[in-house]
Design a protein around this nucleic acid. Sequence first.
DNA 1: GTCTATAGCTCGATAGAC
DNA 2: GTCTATCGAGCTATAGAC
Lengths: 192, 192
Amino acid sequence: MVQQAGTSKAKIIQAADQLFYVHGYNQTSFSDIAAETGIPRGNFYYYFKTKDEILTAVLEHRADQIGSLLQACEEYSDDPKQQLLYLIEILVREEENIIQYGCPLGSLSTELSKVSLTLQQQVALIFETIRLWIDKKLCACGLADRSDMLSMEILSRLQGTTVLANVYHDAAFLRRSAAQHKLWLTEVLSNH
Amino acid sequence: MVQQAGTSKAKIIQAADQLFYVHGYNQTSFSDIAAETGIPRGNFYYYFKTKDEILTAVLEHRADQIGSLLQACEEYSDDPKQQLLYLIEILVREEENIIQYGCPLGSLSTELSKVSLTLQQQVALIFETIRLWIDKKLCACGLADRSDMLSMEILSRLQGTTVLANVYHDAAFLRRSAAQHKLWLTEVLSNH
DNA sequence: GTCTATAGCTCGATAGAC
DNA sequence: GTCTATCGAGCTATAGAC
């Protein structure tokens, strides 16, 4: 479900998306979203029955954003190898946010695993769409026999880099780790 | 500050430690800790002025536990290489907890980075004691020239494995990833 | 040291006027 | 569709008896 930009519903989703990322889901109140959008608290219940429904809408929004990101990778180059390297570069492009707040999906999944398995599984589904995209690109590079394992390893390295960069608030580490990740992947891909 | 086991203060810290891990810091109330310990809510303020002080005491407790863990690695073998491999095996030994709730330090750091930088930095200090221990072991294996970089990479891989195992609730991935981590480290160490 | 009672606040959610 | 007013519950924290 894509929202019309500028409508109250779209404004709520957009503000909640940012606030959930910066302060966390449970640390964001309706008052916070009301203050950010200028829309009174009471109005939210016209668009969403519960706070969980807002999160579900935010997750749909993030899934769309992930779709756009993967689309951008495909527009960056026709070479699946370059597309994968461009995906890894997102760590550097999103450097400031990652250092302050971590990965928008990883940190949310971690929070929700302690709060609601139902909601956490919705985040896991978004992870899976990214993994499937990576898997497809690895197959296109002739690595179909190891694509399952490698796609998980790529995701794992991205998350590890993100968590540690956030723990130490260390931009230099993040850039170094991303560069090393790209070197490793280049070597893996060049053997086929 | 080490607590006498069995005192009310120690009981509060121990219950809070577990609840903060399972439900998160902000999702754990004084009532939850009271229900777990049988100690009335009001009493907490005799031992701690604020909830943040309880967290600080919990972090000291976790730092002690990490100290014991590293001590156990040293008692496992005299060989620093085996000590490092034994540290990685903690992923498998703590498999069930990690899959359900993630890393006790990583997930807490991620949560606190969205709540309080002051508290998050206390967690970062614990990460640093682990990294320094790894660094020391790498130096003992003759890798002093790359120990800074490698110690961060080891921590990064541990966190990546943990986050993804938690996202997918996948024990098989966790074991495979830990085994691969040990293979990689063995190769790195055998070149010196 | 241990306990009860409760203040003061904020939360998610509801009701109903316009 | 938009808004105000408010409920009931839960929270951290305090006061004060024993």
